[in-house]
Design a protein around this nucleic acid. Structure first.
Lengths: 122, 122
DNA sequence: TCATAAGGTTACTTTTTGTAACTTACTCTT
DNA sequence: AAGAGTAAGTTACAAAAAGTAACCTTATGA
């Protein structure tokens, strides 16, 4: 692992860092987690669950996540158009990892918040 | 988990999202992983391993990570000053999670890169 | 004829990052 | 005695990313 992340390589030459910077992006994580929970979601539903994201960033992240192979986009030529997003099989395996992370966050965020407040007192 | 991340709460009212946005930040992850690997690192060594990070962002991230309780900062009043950073016990538990994530990235980044290239062809 | 709907895009503003020079305080070299 | 070097940052300014809100398309139903 650490042999592989050669610290002397500029970031753009380290594929692990490159891939990680997309997959560990705050909005991407939330998008993937909600897709993991619902299986299929349309653009506006996603926007609703990934609370606070803008159209612009949602649309941009969905494109990257599709390009990287985590999700699939299906457009139905109805009117108004219907577009559905879902995880790929590959995306599923990643979401399993993310769920562990999210669970850790869920269990430990009170502690972090407490730390943060105590630190503020100094 | 998903009941807890109430999608109707503005981001600043969801502690899990708040904590996660610090802990899953690209630079923070790299800092924590290298501290996990070396136990103790000084500012300039960290800067060397977390290749590409600027003084400004490194210093800012270290402060947040310290405030959140992941790392500890020890300053020795020598000349020139010596400052050492290390994980707290709490930070260690998080780094274990991060290592799993990093391992997944290491194993799967070739696939993502391949996906990305294929997508470019369409 | 006009409002509505889904899934975006666009122009513009604000926030976050990156860059590179500067600071501090003491020691070592010349 | 003047000047250089050192670690750990800080600061001012420029560039990139994100947020905001209005707009687009195409057809259907009122």
């Amino acid at each position: 692992m650490f042999g592989h992340i050669d610290y002397r390589n500029p970031p753009e030459l380290c594929p692990v860092r490159d891939v990680m910077s997309v997959a560990s992006d705050q909005w991407s994580i939330l998008i993937l987690l909600w897709l993991g929970y619902f299986q299929v979601l349309r653009f506006n539903k996603l926007k609703k669950y990934v609370y606070g994201i803008s159209n612009k960033v949602l649309s941009q992240r969905l494109k990257i996540l599709e390009a990287d192979g985590y999700i699939e986009r299906k457009a139905y030529p109805e009117v108004p158009i219907r577009v559905e997003y879902n995880l790929t099989e590959f995306g599923q395996t990643y979401v399993e990892k993310l769920l562990e992370l999210a669970e850790w966050m869920h269990d430990n965020s009170p502690k972090v918040i407490a730390n943060r407040e105590q630190y503020g007192l100094n």
